[in-house]
């Protein structure tokens, strides 16, 4: 089976964020593989463990420094990687990102495309499904379990919905976006890290900018970034537990009117 895993580099979730010169600024914070993409890489590697003739290609779109996450994914067990280097990428335009990934994927063979449920920076959950449309394959999002038919031609995936789950069947090829619960991503082993050094990373620097087949005169433009409003400092209740409980109940009802 041929699997393509789309991965993105994001800011460490531990980072506190500032805004400087109209851009996100997080001095000293590490950059990591988007945590949801780790589930996607892990799932691909597990499939390969069951189906040894599986081939896993990682694809990322981003600046030079995104290479680190490809190394991580290769050390986890992916076979090869493609790095689309695009330093003036507009990260706010999810559709443009999906199109660029499509340009690189369309001429490859694949049975399964795995993405994270969303990237924890833009939180848009758009690129995966939009990419599936461009590739003309079905998509199942927010997936917590993937079961294959015996001949590996079909999939039944469990996906999360509000207050429950659904089981959805699809033929391959399929695009799935991965959610926590699917697996527990491994830490790369020393052996994996050594092996990753020899694995191929293809760099693409001159991707043509192509529009989709449908014309739509509409665009999205970033106006500004802002930080959440500062909250007033908390009213700390005092006294015996019972008195605090009474005071809180009353304040929520009468002052905050949230009950």
């Amino acid at each position: 089976m041929k699997i393509i895993v789309c991965v993105k580099q994001t800011l460490d979730t531990n980072a506190s964020i500032e805004i400087k010169d109209g851009a996100i600024h997080a001095p000293g914070s590490a950059r990591i593989m988007n945590p949801y993409d780790e589930f996607a890489v892990e799932e691909a590697v597990r499939i390969k463990e069951n189906q040894p003739d599986t081939d896993i290609t990682l694809i990322t779109l981003g600046g030079e420094n995104s290479r680190d996450i490809l190394k991580t994914g290769l050390a986890m067990g992916a076979d090869r990687a493609v790095h689309i280097i695009d330093s003036d990428l507009d990260d706010f335009d999810g559709l443009a990102i999906a199109r660029k990934l499509y340009e690189v994927i369309k001429d490859r063979e694949f049975d399964l495309v795995l993405c994270g449920r969303q990237a924890v920076d833009q939180d848009r959950a758009q690129v995966g499904p939009a990419l599936s449309v461009l590739l003309d394959i079905p998509a199942i999002t927010v997936v917590t379990k993937i079961d294959f038919s015996e001949d590996y031609s079909r999939v039944v995936a469990t996906r999360q919905i509000e207050g429950g789950a659904e089981r959805i069947e699809s033929p391959l090829p399929l695009l799935a976006t991965c959610q926590k619960g699917l697996n527990t991503p491994r830490l790369p082993s020393l052996k994996g890290i050594m092996a990753a050094r020899k694995k191929e990373v293809v760099e693409i620097t001159d991707l043509p900018n192509t529009a989709g087949s449908v014309e739509n005169d509409a665009k999205l433009r970033i106006l500004e970034l802002s930080l959440p409003p500062q909250r007033k400092s908390a009213i700390m209740l005092e006294g015996q537990p019972l008195d605090m409980a009474k005071e809180l109940a009353q304040a929520l009802r009468e002052k905050e009117k949230v009950l």
Binding site: A15, I24, F92, V120, D123, L223, L225, S226, P228
Partner: peptide
Amino acid sequence: IYSGKAYASLA
């Protein structure tokens, strides 16, 4: 964005 650590205004 960044699950609420910042906001983006878009046109």
